[in-house]
Nucleic acid binder design. Structure first.
Length: 260
DNA sequence: ATGTCGCGGTTCCCGCGA
């Protein structure tokens, strides 16, 4: 079984690339983030023509997540139980489903903007709701994983230059402790292999030639319970998809599993 | 070497978020 996660930075803008990537990589399940469109406007017919069922969750210009599956899509849940609001709104940042006997969540963790900003506190609250979901769903024998854009680099090795990020979001101790809490809840960080260079970055800023200079970050993560992580046979970052005109600023992370 | 991108509204540029 092949599962993948990809922040597409607008599914509408990325549709030609998304369809080509699905045809080329043939994941059984794909977790998408940053749809930037509504549930209704999601291109379900186009991905359906490739054999995928869709659980999309979007409200418009920002955020939005989806699960695409060609191995079944059951027990769909939109939003984390108890997911915190931002400015009075529960944003579309999480969707869960059971696909081919594996329980999966596609998540888009809040960015945080600046340390001390209300969005940063919201980010940490959001992680706590995610941790509670892991405790509720992920501690049994069923393979379980949370895939998506976590907006946190787990270690200093996961950013191209730690000095540049000093004092910024994505690398602070409270954010990294939120990831550690997920590991304490039983999940393992399924670290993919890079297809080039030494670090498996998943995101490179559009600005200042981030990709050609490999000024990247590993912020798109796959956190799986023992039944999931123990079944992993391979994992890699598909940096090829970050190349060329019309790319997202994130590359897909692909995980192959030996599950029935 | 791609030396930002994408969206929606206040539209044919601007502000915002990332």
């Amino acid at each position: 079984m092949r599962v993948a996660t990809w922040n597409v930075n607008s599914v509408t803008a990325r549709l030609p690339r998304l369809l080509a990537w699905l045809e080329g990589s043939r994941p059984d399940v794909l977790c998408l983030q940053e749809l930037k469109t509504t549930t209704e406007a999601f291109p379900a017919a186009e991905v359906g023509a490739l054999g995928y069922e869709v659980a999309a969750h979007g409200t418009g210009r920002w955020n939005g997540v989806a699960l695409l599956s060609r191995v079944g899509l059951a027990d769909v849940v939109r939003d984390l139980p108890g997911q915190p609001e931002y400015e009075g709104v529960v944003e579309p940042r999480a969707v869960g489903a059971t696909c081919g006997g594996v329980r999966l969540w596609s998540v888009y963790v809040p960015n945080g903007r600046e340390v001390g900003h209300p969005h940063y506190a919201y980010k940490l609250e959001w992680f706590e709701a995610l941790r509670r979901t892991v405790e509720a769903e992920g501690t049994g024998s069923v393979p379980f994983a949370v895939l998506g854009d976590y907006n946190v680099a787990p270690t200093d090795e996961d950013v191209w230059d730690p000095a540049v990020f000093e004092g910024s979001t994505h690398v602070t101790e409270p954010e990294r402790k939120a990831l550690a809490a997920l590991r304490d809840a039983g999940l393992a960080d399924v670290v993919p292999r890079p297809l080039k260079y030494d670090r498996p970055y998943t995101y490179w800023d559009y600005r200042e030639l981030g990709f050609p200079k490999n000024k990247g970050m590993r912020i798109d993560l796959v956190y799986g319970n023992p039944a999931f992580a123990g079944a992993v046979s391979d994992a890699y970052v598909d940096r090829e998809e970050r190349k060329g005109k019309g790319a997202s600023d994130h590359a897909p992370v692909v995980v192959d599993l030996d599950v029935a």
